[in-house]
Design a protein around this nucleic acid. Structure first.
Lengths: 351, 351
DNA sequence: GTGAAAGCGCTAACAG
DNA sequence: CTGTTAGCGCTTTCAC
C-alpha cells in the first residue's frame, strides 16, 4: 500500500526555495509568491528583482508544497483498462489534450481488467488528492466508484452508474449494437452471430443490444452467440467456435474492433473470404478499422472526443462549482467499409 | 505557467487527517503514522485501535503532505511524442507495469512533437518534484535535458545524449536500418528507396543507417530518399513522391511502421502489388505490423521492454543510489513477414 | 505595495 | 513503546 521507505541519499544539496529567492531579491517570501503566480499588484521593480533571482538560482516552485496548502493538486487521475486497445489510446489523447488546455496534469494508471488492481489504483489516486477522476470502462464494484464520487469529482466512461455521486459519459451501446445488426439485416443477412466481448460492462450491454435488435428484426430464431473477449485472441476464439456450427452464420458482429480483427484472421485462415463468404462488423471504429488493409465496417465511438468531454465535466465541477450530476449518452453511428456485403446465396440462407 | 487560481468552493467538509485518527484511537499522531506505513514496533492493541479509527473515519493518508516532508514523491514523469503510434503505447504499457511493481506513480504528458510543448511539460514535471523522468524520443534542445538531468534522474529513450547527466536506452537505429537494407539486398533488390521519418532524432539516425548500409552493399548509386514522416500520412506522401520517379524502386524502407502502412496504401491505390511489384520494410515491429492483414516485414524494437527497463534504470538511481550513467544500446532484429520478396524481373532491375 | 505570522497534513528525531 | 517537538515549502490573512 505504501511505497518502499528507502532513500539511501539525498539527490544533491537541497533545491532553492522561495525563501532563498526572497533573500536574494531582497524582498519578502509572500512577494515572491505573488510574482511566481503571475502577480498582480506588484511593483515593476520588485517583480524584476524577483524574476532575476529566480533565474539566477534556477528556482522552480514546489508544486507539492503549493498543493498542500491550497488543498488542490490540479491533477486528474485517469484509469484505463489497458492501452493495447487503440480506442483507449484515443481516449487518453483527448484527455491529455484538454487537460493541457485547462492546466491539469494527468496521473495515469491501467487496471489490466482486474478489479483488485483497479480498486488499488483508485485508492492510490485518491490518496494523492487528485482533483478529479476519470474511470474508463471500470470493472470495479460499483460501491467503490460511489465512494470515490463522494470524495472527489468522478466521470465514468462507458458505464452509467446507478448513483448520482458521479457524472457519466457513455456511448449508447444498445443503439450501437442495433446499428450493426440492422446494417446486416438490411443487406439480407439473417444468421447474424455475435462474438461476445467478455465480462466487461460495455460488452454486456452490446450483447443485450444485439439480442434485442435481433428480436426486433424478427430474427430471434437466428440468434447465435460465441464467447470471446475484447482482444484479438478473443476474436479468434469466438470465430473458431462459430466455425464449428452448421449452417455457418453469414454475418458476424464482433464486440469490438480488436475482436473483429482476430475473427477476420481466423476466418480467412479457414479459407473463408470476407465479405464474400461472411460479413463482419466491429465496434469502436478505431484507427485499426480505418486502415485500408483492414477496412472494417465498425460502429463509431468518438474516443478522443469522449476524453476531452470527460475533462470538461471535471472542470465544471472543480472550477465552476457544478454539483448536479450529468449523464451524457452519445449516439453511435455506423461507418460502413469493406467487410460487409449481401450474403452470397440468399436461398441457401433460408435453408 | 501556473494553474488557474480559482476554487469557488471547498469540495466538502474537510477530510479527516492523521490528527483526527489519533484522537479517535486515543493515541498520538506519530503512532498513527507508524501504523499507516506498515508499522513495526507498535503494540497489537494500538495497531488495532488505529486501524479501526481509520476505517470508521474513512481516512486516507495524504500523500501530498507525506511527499512534502519526505522530499520524494514516488512519481515518475513520462513524456512521449504522442500515443497514436502504437510503439509508444507499448512503451508506456511497459513503464506502467514496472512502475506498479516498484510502487511508482506515472505522471504522463505528450509533447505532440513540438519542442516548446515538450519543454513546458518537462518544467511542469520538475516543478511537481517527480523522482525521475523518462523522455521518449524527445525533440527538445539537448541543454534542457541536461539541466533536467542535474535536477532529477532522467532516462532518455532512443536518443543517446552527449552528456553524462542522464541514462539512455536506445535501439541501435543504425544497425536496424542496415538490417532492413541488407534484407532487401539479399533478396536481390538494388533500387532500395527510403521514405524518411521527418526531423526527429530516431528518423535522422535511421536515415544515416540507410545511407551507410547502401554504400556498404555497393548500392551507393541506387540511393534514393523521399520526404515523409512517422505517420501514415507521411508514408503516403513519401510513396507518392517515389511513384513519380523512373525507374521505380523495387523495394522501400519506411522509417517506421505507420509510415510503411501509409506507403502501402498509396502503392496499392496506384495499382502496385506488395510484395510482387515492390517490397516494403517498416520499423518498430508494432502490433500493427503483426496484424495478419498487414503482415509487414519490420525491424523489431521492443517497446514494452524498453519501458520496463527505463523504470528500472530510474529505480537504480532513486532506490539504490547508482550515480554512474548507463547508456544501453539494444540490438535490433528483423521480423520477416509478407511484404518483402525478390524483385519481379531482375533483368529490368539492372536497366 | 509589502512584510510577518500562522498554518496545510504529515514525518522524523528525540525524549519519556 | 509512546508522545512531543520541529519543521517540509508554500500560500494566505492581516497588519503596516
Amino acid at each position: 500500500m505504501s511505497p518502499r521507505g528507502k532513500a539511501p541519499k539525498a539527490p544533491s544539496q537541497s533545491e532553492p526555495t522561495i525563501h532563498d529567492v526572497a533573500r536574494r531579491a531582497q524582498v519578502s517570501k509572500s512577494l515572491v509568491s505573488m510574482v511566481i503566480r503571475g502577480g498582480e499588484g506588484v511593483s515593476k521593480q520588485s517583480q524584476a528583482a524577483v524574476l532575476q533571482a529566480v533565474k539566477e538560482l534556477n528556482y522552480r516552485p514546489n508544486i507539492i508544497a503549493r498543493s498542500l496548502v491550497q488543498r488542490r493538486t490540479r491533477m486528474i487521475g485517469v484509469l484505463l483498462p489497458d492501452l493495447r486497445n487503440p480506442f483507449f489510446s484515443e481516449v487518453i489523447s483527448g484527455v491529455q489534450g484538454r487537460a493541457r488546455e485547462l492546466a491539469f496534469r494527468i496521473l495515469f494508471k491501467t487496471g489490466e481488467r482486474q478489479p483488485e488492481l483497479e480498486e488499488q489504483a483508485i485508492q492510490n489516486l485518491l490518496e494523492l488528492r487528485v482533483d478529479g477522476l476519470i474511470l474508463a470502462a471500470p470493472r470495479v464494484e460499483e460501491q467503490i466508484i460511489i465512494d470515490a464520487g463522494r470524495w472527489t469529482p468522478v466521470v465514468v466512461l462507458n458505464y452509467q452508474i446507478s448513483d448520482d455521486s458521479s457524472d457519466s459519459l457513455s456511448n449508447d451501446n444498445i443503439a450501437g449494437a442495433a446499428l450493426a445488426v440492422e446494417h446486416c439485416a438490411n443487406l439480407g443477412h439473417r444468421r447474424i452471430a455475435l462474438i461476445e466481448g467478455g465480462s466487461g460492462r460495455a460488452a454486456q450491454t452490446r450483447r443485450e443490444g444485439y439480442l434485442r435488435a435481433m428480436r426486433r428484426f424478427g430474427l430471434a430464431d437466428y440468434i447465435q452467440t460465441a464467447e470471446g473477449a475484447h482482444t484479438e485472441e478473443g476474436g479468434q476464439r469466438g470465430a473458431r467456435e462459430l466455425l464449428r456450427t452448421t449452417p455457418l452464420p453469414t454475418a458476424i458482429f464482433a464486440s469490438n474492433d480488436l475482436c473483429a480483427i482476430g475473427a477476420m484472421d481466423c476466418l480467412e485462415e479457414a479459407g473463408l473470404k470476407v465479405p464474400e463468404d461472411i460479413s463482419l462488423v466491429g465496434y469502436d471504429n478505431t484507427t485499426l478499422a480505418a486502415l485500408r488493409h483492414i477496412s472494417l465496417t465498425s460502429v463509431n465511438q468518438p474516443g478522443s472526443e469522449m476524453g476531452r468531454t470527460a475533462v470538461d465535466r471535471l472542470s465544471e465541477r472543480i472550477d465552476n462549482g457544478r454539483t448536479k450530476p450529468l449523464h451524457d449518452v452519445l449516439p453511435p453511428s455506423l461507418v460502413v467499409r469493406s467487410t460487409t456485403a449481401s450474403p452470397r446465396d440468399e436461398s441457401r440462407d433460408s435453408e
